[in-house]
Design a protein around this nucleic acid. Structure first.
Lengths: 210, 210
DNA sequence: GGATTAACCGGAGGGGCCTCCGGTTATTGC
DNA sequence: GCAATAACCGGAGGCCCCTCCGGTTAATCC
């Protein structure tokens, strides 16, 4: 359920062959900053005050600017963090739940993630047109993760085997465009459940619950 | 030579059927602001400090923002002012000089104008893509003015009659891209003179000077 | 020529961005 | 362990953006 903090091995290959692995306090502050930024961006969009983010993270503005020289750098870091969190969550869920429950839960998380990003839309587009290698790294990751989840569920026999993961992912993404009212979260849950039921329909070995 | 300030009639049709013709002091401050902004934009690009512009114009920042709610509004006003100045200069020159001298002088002014605008390039592009009616109004004005100048010179017999005004204008515009070094102004004068000589070549009635 | 008033003026004030540097601390080498 | 030091931290300070409102003034009506 909970997203574990990445162990040392992760950060090593994350930065390739960096000269230094980043001092412990620096690493800590960096994490606090991306966490605070994620919250602030979700709350008030990508134009959120950087000073407020630094304040919420409990560090000075100098520290923020040292780690992220531009607003775009911070946005990119937040985006990457979220994607990595999403990928890591899949493993956690598979470890702790039945495959179809894991799939259902992850789908909801994915929709939440997309919805959170609606404020970042244009900034991400800017980033995409710039030089950043961000998308090359992360682009295929989410679809691959989702496919893995679906395959596990298929093998356990709790969902039908004839659904295309890309199609389902697309359907989930389109839920995002229906997230306007005050009760969008409830609505999104229902939509996700609907899709999940569609996947369960005609499965060889229906799961007990529901 | 000097560009006269527009008389009352001008400002009336400039704003269409505006309810009020703008109070005298407001009008004065508006002019001071666009003048200061033109200088500042030419000096430091369109990112020039708006506070500095207000200071240079001798007014408070509040006045600046009342007249021009956004930076773009100010840029647009400056642009329009320059275009109008260019058009008015043609009449002045025709009144005070021989047609070919007027043409030569105006061509130089046009190049100066283009060069000044190099900093505004992208902002103007943004403006163009927005809703502004600015370009519909001004777009054809400069070419038309230039054609008029050339026709006058042709009729006086001091330049050849077989040159296309659009071609010449294009040539002048392209001088802009050769304005990099510290002596670009000198160079541009020589290039303009060269083009002018090309126009004089084979004219039925060569002018005395030169 | 006054009185009235709508329009205009200026600048203080609150907030944000980013840089710079003296002080602090984790890490390394012994 | 301990010293040396490279790396990091924080926030003051300078500049800018934009809003808001009490005071001022040009225009209008008698």
């Amino acid at each position: 359920m909970s997203i574990q903090k990445p162990e040392a091995a992760d950060e090593a290959d994350e930065a390739g062959a960096s000269p230094r692995p980043l001092r412990a306090d620096a690493r800590r502050n960096r994490d606090k900053l991306t966490a605070a930024a994620a919250k602030a961006f979700a709350r008030s969009g990508v134009d959120a005050s950087l000073e407020a983010i630094a304040r919420e993270a409990g560090v000075g503005t100098g520290t923020l600017y040292r780690h992220f020289p531009t607003r775009e750098a911070l946005i990119e870091a937040v985006y990457r963090r979220e994607v990595e969190g999403l990928v890591a969550a899949a493993d956690d869920l598979l470890r702790q739940e039945t495959p179809d429950a894991a799939l259902a839960e992850w789908m909801q998380r994915y929709v939440d993630y997309i919805a959170t990003k609606r404020g970042m839309r244009d900034s991400l587009k800017l980033l995409l047109e710039s030089n950043s290698p961000l998308f090359a790294e992360t682009h295929g990751l989410v679809p691959r993760t989702f496919r893995r989840l679906m395959e596990q569920a298929v093998q356990s026999g709790t969902i039908r085997p004839d659904a295309d993961s890309a199609d389902v992912l697309h359907a989930l993404s389109s839920i995002y465009s229906a997230t306007d009212g005050p009760d969008w979260h409830e609505r999104s849950r229902r939509l996700v459940a609907l899709i999940m039921d569609g996947l369960r329909y005609g499965a060889p070995r229906p799961s007990q619950r529901r």
